[in-house]
Simulated scan of single mutants.
Amino acid sequence: MSADATTAPTVTDTPVVDAMKAGGGWNNLWDGLYAMDPSWTEKYMDMAMQPYLSGVIPPKVVQLLCIAVDASATHMYAPGTRRHIQAALDMGVTPEEILEVLKLATIVGIHSCNIGAPILQEEMQARGLWPDSPTSSAD
């Protein structure tokens, strides 16, 4: 059953979303999505919660992975980073372990240097501003 453009879908049973809201794990940026399609949002959140609920990965590791994702240069979501750091500390993760995860997360940003530095060097060489490197190989 689908809703037309003027009628939002109705769902009365969203236990995963309700639990996330009650437990502080809900991101208010998801409110619009939830309002437009609560059924799909419930299914998505149910799937997204599996790492927390399956028990396959220890809860401390799940929190560390969430810190890495939220703090990464491609995401940079401070509220989630804070929430997961608080949860990790509450579970007994040490500040040193969290700091190591944050250090690892910064590695994602190194790709801008991996791409940009060789291009800069090539352009400087083309302008006679960078000496040819004796260790560089031909293309």
Rank of each mutant, 00 (worst) to 15 (best):
I85A: 05
S137P: 08
A73S: 11
P118Q: 14
Q121I: 15
R83T: 01
P15F: 10
I98T: 09
G80M: 00
P79V: 07
W130C: 11
P118N: 15
C66I: 04
S72R: 03
A117G: 12
Y77A: 05
K103Q: 12
A48G: 09
I119W: 14
M76I: 09
E97F: 13
S112N: 14
V62Y: 02
T41C: 00
Q86P: 02
V69P: 08
P95N: 04
K103C: 07
S137L: 15
P15A: 00
R127H: 11
T12H: 06
A35H: 06
W130E: 05
P134H: 06
K21W: 04
I110L: 14
M124N: 11
P79N: 01
Q125G: 10
T135F: 15
Y77R: 07
G109S: 05
Y34S: 01
Y77S: 06
E122N: 15
L99K: 12
A8Y: 01
E100Q: 13
Q63K: 07
D132N: 10
A68K: 06
A71C: 01
T135C: 14
G32C: 07
Q63V: 03
M91V: 07
N27P: 06
R83P: 03
Q125N: 01
P79D: 04
V101Y: 11
G23A: 03
D139Q: 15
T7F: 03
M36R: 00
L33P: 00
P118E: 14
M1L: 05
I85F: 02
L129I: 13
M20N: 04
G109D: 08
P118I: 15
D90T: 01
S112L: 13
E97W: 13
A117V: 14
G25H: 06
P9F: 10
V11R: 01
G116E: 13
R82E: 12
A19Y: 12
Y52G: 06
A71G: 07
S137Q: 15
A3Q: 04
M91P: 02
D70E: 08
S133Y: 14
P15Q: 01
D139N: 15
N27D: 03
T81P: 02
A8Q: 05
Y34R: 03
A138M: 13
L53P: 11
V93I: 05
D37C: 09
R127P: 02
L102G: 04
D18V: 10
D132R: 10
G80F: 02
G25P: 09
V108W: 11
A3E: 09
P79R: 04
G92Y: 08
S39C: 03
M45G: 05
R83F: 01
L102F: 07
G25Y: 00
P51R: 07
V16Q: 02
G32K: 06
A8E: 04
L65Q: 00
H84P: 10
A73T: 11
E100C: 12
G116D: 12
D13E: 09
A3K: 06
L104S: 08
A117S: 13
V101S: 04
